[in-house]
């Protein structure tokens, strides 16, 4: 990923932000798809993994914001906690993927994803408890909304994101993670 030029990273991130707006709409028609795998999370995670932590952070902020403004999803009232959550995902997985080098792509990806998804949920939970709905946010509510009802989404994200990275590498759109020693 360090092989990508600055322009490439910028434009890839732009496209991920665009997808944050388009994907939820596209999956709206499919029953349960939106609530099930939170389509907006995927471009954010990808931009963090592929372009780096600053781009992932930007995608996590701009994606939901733009989506809310242009399509009304998520409703502006719910935007703040989503911004915190997704920006953290983008930031953390971008950092993690740079730090973790197990020589196995999938291991790197899974670890970065799990840490990012966890960190995002923790920080969003803290933000909600302290800033957004002070006094009415409990630990139980946090566990329920972020882990219990959305665990199928977690599984699906953990399946889809590595599959997408692999597909993008095969299509030679992103450089291979570990360049084969010539």
């Amino acid at each position: 990923m360090s092989k990508l030029s600055a322009v490439q990273r910028s434009i890839f991130t732009a496209v991920c932000i665009g997808l944050c707006v388009v994907l939820p709409m596209a999956f709206h028609a499919i029953p349960n798809a939106g609530t099930l795998f939170s389509p907006m999370h995927i471009p954010v995670l990808l931009s963090g993994l592929i372009c780096g932590w600053s781009f992932g952070f930007l995608c996590g902020l701009a994606g939901p914001l733009l989506s809310s403004l242009l399509t009304g999803m998520p409703p502006l009232a719910y935007l703040p906690s989503m911004l915190v959550e997704l920006a953290t995902y983008g930031l953390v997985c971008g950092l993690m993927i740079n730090l973790i080098r197990t020589e196995k792509i999938y291991a790197d990806l899974y670890i970065s994803l799990v840490v990012a998804l966890l960190a995002g949920r923790i920080i969003a939970g803290v933000a909600r408890a302290l800033l957004f709905s002070p006094g009415s946010y409990s630990f139980a509510a946090w566990i329920t909304s972020y882990f219990i009802t959305s665990w199928p989404g977690l599984v699906i994200q953990l399946t889809l994101v590595p599959a997408l990275v692999s597909a993008l590498m095969k299509a030679k759109l992103i450089p291979p993670w570990y360049p084969t020693k010539a």
């Binding site: 496209v15 665009g18 997808l19 994907l23 990808l46 997408l164 993008l168 299509a171 759109l173």
Partner: peptide, 10 residues
């Protein structure tokens, strides 16, 4: 979806 999006981005 992602392949065609990244293709255009490239």
């Amino acid at each position: 979806v992602f392949i065609s999006a990244f293709r255009r981005a490239e």
